[in-house]
Design a protein around this nucleic acid. Structure first.
Length: 850
DNA sequence: GAGCACTGC
């Protein structure tokens, strides 16, 4: 009798199979993208041949050639084994590479063995110590146990109040067949064109309140432009701000097409690192942050006649600041027009902020969504969401499922749990393809979610908040909403950033539900009761301006010329303490003088799109002749979160890769410098990045930041030193001069740390992702760039320092008394002398006038 | 010895 296969075998098979599938999918995806690009190139060449530059033509040719070569290579090279493709470790033919592959393979094998043993043991334990593993096929019957399945109440509450649902569907079908012009006139907003223009003529500010699918983001700027053109004005510019880069790009692309011109001519966009506009551009899509920065460099809005603030209801920091600045500018630019575009909920508050600006309501066009609420509160929303997925999968009609969870961790747990249940169910339910989605997931894997599920299968996407606004997936018919999300909040007295799971707002809940109705009617299953939806959830989320460290914003506003921040008309004024603490930080950095006026240093710092502390490090670094390494490190600091990608099963490999970058003595900062230098040495080789488990997408962004910083340093007059050996002392000093306030010393237990000054009672820890997290590597004194509260108070990105540097570089911050105490404490740390000296508050700090 | 919501300049 052949040995019986058990669940562990199946699971392991599935793992192997899905890896191989994944790789094939990934390859195919890349090829498809390339093919699409080439097709688009050809179309572009056909339509705009005469307008194309030589460089653009050359790029198109290059893409075409790459495609041809790839196709040819695929025909020849069909022998790649799954395993080697999987690791895709090496780019070259070096024998060294091959031996490494084999080593990795062995390590991987033993890892798999370990994992499988563990699973077998678990299965045994589940059987109560019986021998062998249960045969799921024979004994397991999948039924919904009424005590564990989730009951949803109600026939459904209609989410979409629009009454022309049927009409909308007909319209949508018709739309596809129509020409661009017809599509434009068939958009819901078209009927309101004249009303909008008329209000805009008589009023300076108009609130346009439109639901999704009304066409507001693409049409509003065009209506305004048409109006000015008809007035004989062929020069004015219309700006439209967006909170996200992708939105700015795709809107500009679409509007350019509707307008019948090439992108970057009449219609263009400006985002960080990319400016596709020219002197003829009339409609300019921008990210809100870019416009805000432009206020600093070229504050004149001379040629700008109208600004559309799109998605204002999201209340991003930049949009909020822009609204306040424009409210001010309006007073002396009476010809300037502002259109605030928002979702329904907030309209009234926008109107009262702009002293009673008229509100125009535009219906949207989306499919109806039926919402179901849990009949009773669910204690474990993770388990509940998994159960709900199978309830839908087993009983509901075709259509993909989108599950909203709070973080990567949860998603991985849910993924595994669903896979296991799937296996138990065997053929009794049809195929369910489960895919994770979160922002630090590599690009290729994010791409998989857009592929339609094969005939007869259903796709289930487990996503974080990224799917709420940033990414739209067509074909979703069912949304499962756990009712929570992770949110960042900043406490300005403890200087602590806190990432915690909080209930979402009603606005978010509706936004999530709306994701089910993009291509047809849908349903939303909410894992909380209707009572809590109506009575416990806040109407809208807290605006960002109330939740973040405002230091850079305060410096920016001061540099623009807004001096009286406490009386500046914010829509949601931040707490005075928050502004005061920012002013204090800026004063300590030398960016403001004692009267609160921007200094020469402050003007330089404001130029950099960086935290003020890091700008200060750059200034000091150029003085100490270590600008090159410091620019590298600072470029990395901002992106350090998504640097490595660690698939669970390759943890050992990732750790080994991380260790390779360790430089003794400079902590995480040294590793960052080394990673960036290696990235440069390999000539930005993405295969190298993959081999080291570094995310190529992140590194590419770091490279952009690096280039931008180099350029800005030059503008500010910072001259990089000649290439040469890295001077660790100079690097440390440069960072201490910016981050002196974030200094900590090791506590007597040799494990935790205490801030050198300030929040004296708190204990902080080195984050586990740090290179110096190992007990043997921990420095006595260090500075950190970020303090986050998760399970503990963790310092992220740390740099070992000498205590003398603190008093040398920040004598105004560390007083005479501190110096002695620091010295004494150093001895205590070595185990000699008296114990228990309290280091910290002197109580004699100079207060600065605000 | 144990962890990283999402944007943006």
């Amino acid at each position: 009798m052949p040995p019986k296969r058990n669940a562990t075998d199946d699971l392991s098979d599935l793992r192997q199979r899905s890896r191989y599938d994944y790789l094939q999918k990934r390859e195919a995806l890349k090829l498809a993208e390339l093919q699409k690009d080439v097709e688009e190139d050809e179309k572009e060449r056909e339509r705009f041949g005469d307008q194309l530059s030589k460089r653009e033509l050359a790029e198109m040719d290059k893409r075409k050639m790459t495609l041809r070569l790839t196709l040819e290579r695929n025909q020849i090279d069909d022998t790649n084994s799954g395993f080697f493709m999987l690791d895709s470790t090496m780019t070259t033919d070096k024998s060294e590479a091959l031996t490494k592959r084999h080593k990795d393979k062995d390590a991987f094998k033993s890892e798999v063995q370990l994992w499988e043993d563990e699973q077998t043991a678990k299965a045994k334990a589940a059987q109560g110590g019986q021998n062998g593993v249960r045969e799921p096929e024979d004994e397991y019957e999948f039924v919904f146990d009424p005590s564990t399945s989730i009951n949803f109440v109600g026939d459904g509450v209609n989410y979409d109040p629009s009454k022309q649902q049927l009409q909308a569907q007909l319209d949508a079908a018709e739309q596809r067949a129509k020409s661009i012009a017809d599509v434009r006139t068939s958009l819901p907003i078209h009927k309101y064109k004249e009303t909008i223009i008329n209000s805009m003529i008589s009023e300076q500010v108009v609130i346009v309140c439109a639901e999704t699918g009304s066409g507001k983001s693409s049409q509003l700027p065009q209506y305004v432009l048409e109006h000015y053109e008809s007035q004989g004005d062929h020069e004015s510019i219309i700006l439209c701000t967006q909170p996200r880069r992708v939105a700015a790009i795709s809107l500009a692309t679409r509007v350019a097409e509707e307008h019948g011109s090439r992108l970057g001519q009449t219609v263009g966009y400006t985002i960080r690192f990319e400016d596709r506009t020219n002197e003829k551009t009339r409609i300019k899509y921008m990210t809100d942050g870019t416009l805000l920065r432009q206020f600093l460099t070229s504050p004149d809005l001379d040629k700008i006649r109208a600004i559309v603030l799109d998605e204002a209801h999201e209340r991003t920091l930049a949009t909020d600041i822009l609204m306040a600045l424009l409210k001010d500018v309006m007073k002396y630019r009476t010809d300037l027009r502002i259109l605030v575009s928002s979702a329904t909920m907030d309209a009234q508050s926008f109107s009262s902020y702009y002293s009673g600006a008229p509100i125009l309501w535009v219906p949207g066009r989306s499919y109806p969504i039926t919402s179901y609420f849990a009949s009773q509160p669910e204690a474990n929303y993770l388990q509940a969401s998994i159960t709900t997925v199978f309830q839908i999968h087993a009983s509901a009609a075709d259509g993909d499922i989108l599950v909203f969870l709070t973080g990567q961790d949860e998603i991985e747990v849910a993924l595994q749990s669903i896979e296991e249940t799937k296996l138990k169910l065997g053929n009794r339910v049809k195929e369910l393809i489960v895919l994770p989605l979160y922002s630090s997931l590599p690009q290729e894997e994010q791409g998989l979610i857009f592929r339609p599920a094969p005939e007869g299968a259903r796709k289930c996407i487990l996503a974080t908040n990224i799917a709420e606004t940033s990414l739209t997936i067509d074909g979703i018919r069912y949304v499962v909403d756990c009712g929570y999300s992770k949110e960042n909040s900043y406490n300005n007295t403890t200087r602590l950033e806190q990432l915690s799971v909080v209930p979402i707002s009603r606005a978010s809940a509706n936004q999530r539900a709306g994701r089910a109705g993009r291509t047809g009617p849908g349903s939303c299953f909410r894992l909380y009761t209707q009572y809590s939806f109506q009575n416990e959830l806040a109407e809208t989320s807290e605006p960002e301006i109330l939740r973040v460290n405002l230091t850079s914003t305060v410096l920016l506003l001061k540099s623009i010329g807004v001096n009286d921040l406490l009386n500046f008309e914010f829509m949601s004024p931040p707490a005075p303490e928050s502004i005061a603490s920012s002013l204090e930080t800026l004063y300590c950095l030398g960016a403001l003088d004692s009267r609160g006026v921007v200094t020469r240093v402050g003007r330089s710092l404001a130029q950099f799109p960086l935290p003020a502390e890091q700008g200060k490090c750059l200034l000091k670094a150029s003085e100490l002749g270590c600008l090159r390494p410091v620019i590298k490190i600072i470029s990395m600091l901002g992106e350090a979160n998504a640097l490595f990608f660690a698939p669970k099963d390759k943890k050992l490999h990732v750790d080994a890769a991380r260790r390779r970058f360790y430089v003794n003595g400079l902590g995480d900062y040294g590793a960052y410098e080394r990673i960036y230098s290696s990235w440069v040495e390999t000539e930005y080789d993405t295969m190298w990045a993959k081999q080291e488990f570094l995310q190529a997408k992140t590194l590419a962004r770091v490279r952009n930041v690096h280039e931008q910083l180099e350029k800005l340093c030059e503008q500010v007059g910072l001259v990089p030193e000649d290439e040469g050996e890295l001077d660790p002392v100079a690097v440390k000093k440069a960072f201490v001069s910016g981050y002196f306030a974030n200094s900590a010393r090791m506590a007597r237990d040799g494990q935790s740390y205490r801030p050198v000054k300030g929040a004296n009672s708190t204990t902080v820890w080195i984050h586990p992702s740090s290179w110096v997290h190992e007990p043997t590597e921990r420095p006595k004194w260090l500075i950190y760039s970020e303090l986050v509260l998760t399970s503990k108070e963790f310092m992220r990105s740390v740099l070992p320092i000498e205590p003398e540097m603190l008093t040398e570089l920040a004598p105004f911050y560390f007083k005479e008394g501190d110096i002695e105490k620091l010295g004494m404490d150093k001895k205590v740390g070595k185990g000699k002398g008296k114990v228990g000296v309290d280091v910290g508050t002197t109580g004699t700090e100079k207060r600065m006038p605000v």
